[in-house]
Amino acid sequence: MFIQILGVFDILKKKEMSLQYYLQRLYEIQEEELDVLISIGAYYLQEDNFEDSLNYFEKALRMAIDMDDDEMEAFIIDSIGDVYLNSRNIDKALEYYKEAMRIYFSIKSPLKDEIKEKIKEVKKIKAAIDITEISQIKERKVPEPEEPPELNLEKLNSKLDFVVNMVDSTSIYSSYSNDKEAVSHLKDAFRISRDIGDEAGEAALLLMLGNIALKQKEYTDAKKYLEDSKTFFRRLGDEKGTGVTMVLLGTLNFALGDMQEVSDNFRNAVEKFQKIGNKDAESAAIDLLNTLYED
């Protein structure tokens, strides 16, 4: 009888160990699922697909709350704030950032100071958007012309080149710009960049090809180069490169007579430059826009 009782305790002990193992495995699986949800949300945010990004971040938030993981909860709330910031809903973004900060401070997270500084920067962006010339661009109503306006290339060429050269990755190819065979050389360089997987080089070269096509009034080619360049810069998370591409697209829109797109592209570009604190790029974009409307 005594031996039988010992046997029962052995079984119970094994079951207890097995339960702990499976509970640990369950937690690890939940952590993996949470990480996947966050990664998908971040991917969609990078692609400016704000609806899907928000959907996955909200799923991740519910899971973090169920897991009672305060720091992860705050991180996801912070990420949701990023979605609203990038979709230009700054007031909503600030609400989420403040909630994330509250949680970080309550658990004494080392991230509390970082989110505090982030809120300060976003408030500066909000103030800048309210008081700078970009507000006037938003309100500007330009009548649709009967014929697309003619680009004054004598005035624009140097300004377009100046804006393009603000992108750091264009500097190594600048020697091609004034070459008679510039397009051929840039295309060769693009193929090499593509073969070696240099996406920053591909983005820069497409931007430069788009600039040349724009100045030569080859608008179909210019649009293709610039749209592809913007896609690369966005994928790389290069805000300045994306903004510069939008400036050239806005100039192209002006040549094609699409005034709403002119306003949208220049507005978005200036907001990106303000976001990263690049005053030179912001001023150059506004100067180029003013030059377009001088005549």
Rank of each mutant, 00 (worst) to 15 (best):
M63I: 07
M17G: 01
R62H: 11
L45M: 09
E33L: 11
L23M: 14
E16Q: 14
M67F: 05
K15H: 05
Y104S: 03
I38C: 10
S87N: 10
E32I: 10
F105S: 14
G41S: 04
S109I: 01
L85D: 01
P110Y: 07
K108N: 11
I80S: 03
K59S: 10
Q30K: 12
D91E: 09
K15A: 15
M72D: 01
Y96V: 02
D35W: 01
I103V: 09
E58K: 06
L19G: 05
D69Y: 05
I65W: 02
Y104D: 07
A93F: 00
M63R: 04
K13Y: 13
S106R: 13
A64N: 06
Q24R: 15
L23V: 02
Y22D: 09
S106Y: 06
I103R: 02
V36N: 02
I40E: 09
Y22M: 11
D82Y: 13
A74P: 08
E95G: 02
L26G: 00
Y104H: 08
E32W: 05
D35C: 10
Y56A: 00
P110R: 06
S79V: 01
Q20W: 04
K108G: 04
M63H: 02
D78R: 09
I103L: 03
L85I: 09
E28P: 00
Y104P: 01
A100W: 03
Y43R: 13
K14R: 15
L85C: 07
R62C: 09
M67Q: 08
N86T: 09
L94T: 13
A74I: 05
A42W: 03
E31F: 00
A100N: 00
Q24L: 14
S18H: 12
F105W: 12
M63Y: 01
D48W: 12
K92G: 01
S106Q: 06
K59V: 15
L23D: 09
I77S: 01
G41T: 04
M101V: 05
A93D: 03
D35T: 15
L34Q: 06
E16S: 14
Q30C: 06
V36H: 03
F50P: 01
Q30G: 07
M72A: 04
D35Q: 07
Q24W: 15
R25L: 10
A60Y: 06
Q30S: 12
E32R: 09
D91W: 05
Y96Q: 06
N55Y: 12
K59R: 15
D48P: 02
K15S: 04
N89L: 07
